[in-house]
Simulated scan of single mutants.
Amino acid sequence: MSTQKALVVLEPKGAFAVQDRDIQEPGAGEVLVELRATALNPVDWKIQAFDFFITEYPAVLGTDGAGVVVKVGAGVTNVAVGDKVLFQGYFDNRRATFQQYAVVASEIVAKIPPNLSFEEASTIPLTLATAALALYSPKPQGIALAAPWEAGNRGKYAGEPIVVIGGSSSVGQQVIQFARLSGFSPIITTASPSNSALLKSLGATHIIDRSAPLSELPAAVQAITSAPVKVAYDAISAPDTQNAAYDVLAPGGKLVIVLAQAVDAGRLTPQKEVVHVFGSVQAPDNRKVGASLYAALPGLLASGEIKPNKVEVLPGGLAGIPAGLEKLRAGVSALKLVARPQENL
């Protein structure tokens, strides 16, 4: 069996190191991808710091990948050797993306159109899943809206408002784009004024300054629209943002969160729902919606209806990822940090 370089966490809450590891073989319905780019996400530094999801050490992390198909397993027909693809990794050493090769089920890979680089494509998978699965998966995984990539559903929610907390975050940007495809209007988001032009280009119609007191959010939304807000997506999901977003909702409304629920108990009412999304198309409960999304994704990317995040490429290949995770932990806005696994090794 051939070997590759991989960045691993040596032990629970331990240090990172670049090691040699075996390259895995794809099974039936799977493909082996030579990774050309992998994006960093907050979950990566959190796993290393707090030790969750992982059952095997040394552990390879990383859930955003783009590269070239180098082997296909039995029964694979949607992609072929040589295809440029993007995919979402998972929390095991076979499927994680902080390495030079990873295995993935072919039904959840998408061909990269010519208008995207590997680096741009690698910013898409996790944030795409976190946005789309929350909005369009059946309950309890999501809030069961009609998926706009399926026939007859484009623009279905025309005239209905949506509020997105943290619009300039990587997830927030994807939520705004899906909201536009679904027809929501107005699309109201909190963000720094410096990111207004970017977010409006993605589909946001109104920007509320993120530095304004959250207690003023319901009034700010009401000043924009008198229509009842039935959907709010909190891409930040701190306790204060969850409470503010919950207060914005009308009876019958649904709040999507990406971290553990922290809405004050005194606020909770049976008239409003809170849904915590697990943003992975790898998860069995999410696979059906994920496969449907990935079948449509090349077209959405080629048309520009779904755009990637802005990219900052890290130096040093896999060895540069730990410093990138520290930078991510300190806070970045409106961009994704990306490493090139084949570089400098």
Rank of each mutant, 00 (worst) to 15 (best):
L314D: 03
K272Q: 04
A129E: 06
A265V: 06
L40K: 12
A319W: 03
F87V: 00
P298R: 00
N41H: 02
F87N: 04
G75M: 01
V258T: 04
P213N: 11
G142F: 13
A158L: 14
N286L: 09
A227K: 15
A235I: 01
A131Q: 00
K46N: 01
V85H: 00
I165G: 04
Q48R: 15
S169V: 00
K254S: 14
F53A: 15
A262P: 05
I108K: 07
G62Q: 11
S211W: 14
E343H: 07
A235M: 08
G324D: 08
I207R: 13
I207P: 11
A223G: 15
R329G: 07
V338R: 00
P218W: 01
A59F: 04
T3Q: 15
S226M: 07
D234T: 05
E343N: 07
Q242E: 10
T269D: 00
S237D: 11
Q24K: 15
L10K: 15
L202N: 03
F50I: 06
T63Y: 14
F91R: 04
A291F: 02
K84S: 11
I54C: 02
T205K: 00
V109T: 02
Q282Y: 12
F53H: 14
V79F: 04
T130V: 06
A66M: 14
Y246A: 09
K310M: 12
V274R: 15
K327H: 06
V18H: 04
A323P: 01
L126M: 12
L300Y: 02
V289W: 06
V79Y: 00
H206S: 09
S117K: 05
A235V: 01
I208S: 02
A144I: 10
G316D: 07
S215D: 15
Q271T: 11
G172S: 03
Y101E: 08
P114S: 13
G14V: 12
H276W: 11
Q141T: 05
F16H: 11
V256D: 00
V274P: 04
K288Q: 13
S122M: 01
S137G: 14
L181Y: 05
T205G: 15
L7K: 14
P193H: 08
V33E: 05
Q4M: 13
E120N: 06
I208N: 01
V311C: 03
E119M: 13
P251C: 10
P270H: 05
E312F: 10
K71V: 02
A265P: 00
V103S: 06
V163R: 08
I165A: 08
A334V: 01
V289P: 02
E34W: 08
V109F: 01
A37V: 07
N286D: 06
A302Q: 10
P113K: 02
G73Q: 04
G299P: 13
E160A: 10
P114T: 08
P218S: 08
T3H: 12
S226G: 11
N195H: 13
V275Y: 03
V103D: 12
